[in-house]
Design a protein around this nucleic acid. Structure first.
Lengths: 223, 223
DNA sequence: CTTACTGTTGACGCTGTGCCAACAAGCTAC
DNA sequence: GTAGCTTGTTGGCACAGCGTCAACAGTAAG
């Protein structure tokens, strides 16, 4: 018969294989916590040898970071939302848009943003923080609050903090259903308004006095 | 000389030993992420055989959960804070108190509350969620907002969401120092005020209309 | 068909964890 | 003091998961 009856495995372009593995990994990491997903599981799911994961992604942790990175790349805020009207209107529109995009990602978004999965990993935090930062900057820009460059760093820090409220309330909404979508939207809108309207202005006012000894404590009592 | 020259190890009461191990584990888990802390490390730190950890706490995960539980048991809010004065005064006092207690715990608190450490573990989430719930209920009670029992569930859900803002801003303060303590206090106070004053009232108003089809989406597109 | 390139495999070694039988610290009875 | 007993503690075994790497095989070019 034919000499090469049937190849035991198929040879793919690196990009295609990488993509396929990434897809399987994304699905599994969405279903179970990080530690519960073994590289063997991912390899089996992709119909591939375990060693290939290391070949393409290095460590298991790196693969996970790739998954998170991709998950946090959300469609841009700038398009599809008009930035006209009062502050309240703009705020409500942007919150609404954000909830829409999150709704499409569903539980996977919650699983990734929530307890991350890998633990308090510096690299992972950097990625998430970076994504939060981008979201914060975009929100500020969208709301037309990018003028006072002097306070920009603190403004963004506060917007990242606001991101914590966003994630937590979304978790209440998606997971337990303890908040309806309207509740979530109301909460997020009001909070965002008060931040950009009241907090930012008070920030500018208090900017004069010394801020030297208001730093964070070191690390708490040693024992 | 004395027949029993020097015992190679000391025999402790189970509670004492448990306490000692828990203390060492708490310190280590505060310094490094969960996966980076081996049970061997903890055992060495406590000057104890590794097997003893399993004897007292079962799995490594269980030990970690114990650590988290203890970390989240903070001194009661009720004492040491008087609940008189205007809403703003009460809010500012409670926020201040909370920041004080967190400051003593420092980085360990952040490490534990932040990305948990273990990954999206159901048990861990239950613990954290429970602690958040207690904090939320206490805050509501302290602010004298425990009257409308009809909305109590939603109020608490919103207070848990507020907890997300609290943690995120505290992280900005403790970790990067991107927010000063004053900034954090300002942000948290204003947000809390607007929630209990404005959001809750709007919640009561919208309570009439049907809220049936405002549930969370299922789980997003399958692939 | 032959050859070379490289995507892919499978096995090896290492680390970390859970388990458990043996050991010994220290109290009690004599 | 010493023999005996209780039980806190140890150390080694077995196993699972991960990273590495040399060898293998599909596949396109000559």
């Amino acid at each position: 018969m034919s000499p090469a009856a049937s190849p035991r495995w198929k040879r793919l372009e690196p990009d295609a294989r990488r993509e396929q593995i990434l897809e399987c990994a994304t699905r599994l990491f969405g279903e179970r916590p990080y530690a519960e997903v073994s590289t063997t599981d991912i390899a089996r799911e992709a119909g591939v040898a375990r060693g290939l994961l290391n070949h393409y992604f290095g460590q298991k942790r790196d693969l996970y970071l790739k998954v998170v990175k991709r998950m946090l790349l959300m469609p841009g805020l700038e398009e599809s939302v008009t930035m006209t009207g009062t502050l309240r209107e703009r705020v409500e529109r942007s919150v609404e848009w954000y909830l829409d995009t999150v709704a499409t990602h569903g539980k996977t978004y919650v699983a990734v943003t929530g307890m991350g999965g890998i633990g308090s990993d510096p690299e992972l935090e950097r990625i998430i923080s970076e994504a939060d930062d981008v979201a914060a900057a975009k929100t500020l820009e969208f709301l037309g609050l990018k003028v006072e460059v002097g306070n920009d760093a603190r403004h963004r820090a506060m917007m990242r903090s606001y991101g914590g409220l966003v994630k937590a309330s979304i978790r209440e909404w998606i997971r337990g259903g303890t908040l309806s979508r309207e509740d979530t939207q109301l909460l997020l809108s009001e909070a965002l308004i008060v931040i950009v309207r009241d907090v930012f202005s008070q920030l500018a006012k208090q900017d004069g006095p010394a801020r030297g000894d208001t730093r964070a404590p070191k690390t708490g009592p040693k024992r």
